[in-house]
Design a protein around this nucleic acid. Structure first.
Length: 425
RNA sequence: GGAGAGGUGGCUGAGUGGUCUAAGGCACCGGAUUGCUAAUCCGGCGUAGGAUGAAUUUUCUACCGGGGGUUCAAAUCCCCCCCUCUCCGCCA
């Protein structure tokens, strides 16, 4: 949510920033509504002040045994006016909030202007494609030959878009989760947290998934709960309504959860294999930081996600999302993409974003400097990283001519010494 | 799921319709004092919003788990919901 004061001070700048995201916002209508809101507050408070004073007088008169029926009638009338004003005020605030909650964040000035993902610049590439003297296969062909995926069985119990890993693939997935969490906690300064997977409306509103993206979420109507689409939601909302002391920042959290996404708008993009699933595992990193530090922290956060891939020896690249492609809540986002040689495609495995105060204002996450007033802080998060596509890249980049897969050396302690996945077992 | 108890400021805790303008204590901040590592005294000390202003100004309003209601007036009375604790039931 944007601060209405910013709109008030510089409506033209706001229009320009939203326009860079391809959005035409009627800022003047918002400001008119805000003007009405403040007018109502002023009038309402004046009435309340009068009522408070009169009621106090009635109390004193009654105590003194005097007749107060005239004053009581007068105050009753004020009370009716107050009710009317309160009704209108509630309506205006509801309208205004609904509109403000549906408006995306402003892109940071360093974000390149563009219309679509085609305009996202690559800012660096790490490693190089593995030399192969054979035609690399996509992971689903490798998996079939190795007998380590059971997609048909997953479909039978849950439908399309669900995966089932068996034997070495399941072990590899579990080992990767442990490896990533260990790396973030022991070398990058994060605290591991195990969080709920079902959350309420308020949590999803805080991080920006609601009210706009309800159709992307799985919902449990009986209990008014939703399955989380990412650990960002519970991790960030852990500190909803919290005021940090300056000395507690930056606060870095990491956690592994399954993520549940309906992928409602992506029907045509449901490709084979594990590129896109309704349920997948992910290790997430979340940061609460002072506003002055948030862009430096974004670079660190991105580095922490990259460290995972570097230690695994995987070829990847980092791109900056342009103004037309950046997410709703984000002010700046780097995507990290792994090379999948069997598909000749780059697969997004991490999205690292600085939300500035957008989420923190919604979720009322603040910090206190010295003895001063609480101020809204900045939140960031990034995948560190998503499991299925990581698995895909390990398989496709590690594949051998005989169809076996050589696993990254650093994972071996997590895999009971397993060095490769082969048909012989 | 059933029965009972409870939810008040950073913490503790009083308050059962009208100076509640939420007591007291702890913690914290500022000052004073005593030379002894701490005590004493004085003052300050919540959040959000509106108006005002040169201002770290002045002032008003709201907030006692959340939402509704009764009343001239609600922390206080009534209704619904949420959460915590104890016991019972069920259960990995």
């Amino acid at each position: 949510m944007l601060d209405i004061k910013i709109l008030r001070e510089n409506p033209e700048a706001a229009k320009t920033k939203w326009a860079s995201r391809g959005l035409d916002v009627d800022v003047d209508a918002l400001l008119a509504k805000d003007e009405r809101r403040r007018q109502l507050i002023t009038e309402l408070e004046e009435l309340q002040r009068t009522r408070n004073a009169s009621s106090k007088e009635i109390g004193m008169k009654k105590k003194a045994g005097e007749d107060a029926s005239e004053a009581m009638a007068a105050v009753r009338e004020i009370g009716e006016q107050i009710s009317a004003f309160e009704k209108e005020k509630a309506q205006v605030i509801e309208d205004l909030d609904a509109q403000l909650l549906s408006l995306p964040n402003f892109p940071h000035e360093s974000v390149p202007v563009g219309h679509s993902e085609a305009d996202n610049p690559v800012i660096r590439t790490w490693g190089s494609p593995v030399e192969m003297d054979f035609e690399p296969k996509p992971h689903w062909e490798l998996a079939e030959a190795l007998g380590i995926f059971e997609f048909e069985r997953a479909a039978a119990i849950s439908g399309a878009g669900f995966s089932c890993l068996t034997g070495p693939a399941a072990r590899l997935s579990r080992g990767l989760i442990s490896f990533m969490l260990d790396l973030h906690t022991s070398e990058h300064g994060y605290t591991e947290v195990a969080v709920p997977l079902l959350v309420n409306d308020e949590a999803l509103t805080g991080t920006g998934q609601l009210p706009k993206f309800a159709e992307e979420l799985y919902r449990i109507p009986e209990d008014d709960l939703w399955l989380i689409p990412t650990a960002e939601v519970p991790l960030t909302n852990l500190y909803r309504d919290h005021i940090f002391d300056e000395s507690e920042l930056p606060c870095n959290l990491t956690g592994h959860t399954p993520c549940f996404r309906r992928e409602a708008g992506a029907a045509g993009k449901m490709t084979r294999g594990m590129n896109r699933l309704h349920q997948f595992d992910k290790v997430e990193m979340v940061k609460f930081v002072q506003p002055s530090e948030s862009y430096a922290e974004l670079e660190k956060l991105t580095g922490h996600a990259e460290a995972v891939l570097q230690k695994l020896g995987l070829h990847y690249r980092v791109i900056t999302l342009c103004t037309g492609d950046i997410g709703f809540s984000s002010a700046k986002t780097y995507d990290i993409e792994l090379w999948a040689p069997g598909q000749q495609a780059w697969l997004e495995v991490s999205s690292c974003s600085n939300f500035e105060d957008f989420q923190a204002r919604r979720a009322k996450i603040r910090y206190r400097k010295d003895q001063g007033k609480p101020e809204i802080l900045h939140t960031l998060n990034g995948s560190g990283v998503a499991l299925p596509r990581l698995l895909v890249a390990i398989m496709e980049q590690g594949q051998q001519a005989d169809g076996s897969i050589v696993l990254p050396e650093i994972l071996r302690p997590y895999l009971g010494g397993m060095e490769r996945i082969s048909a012989e077992g």
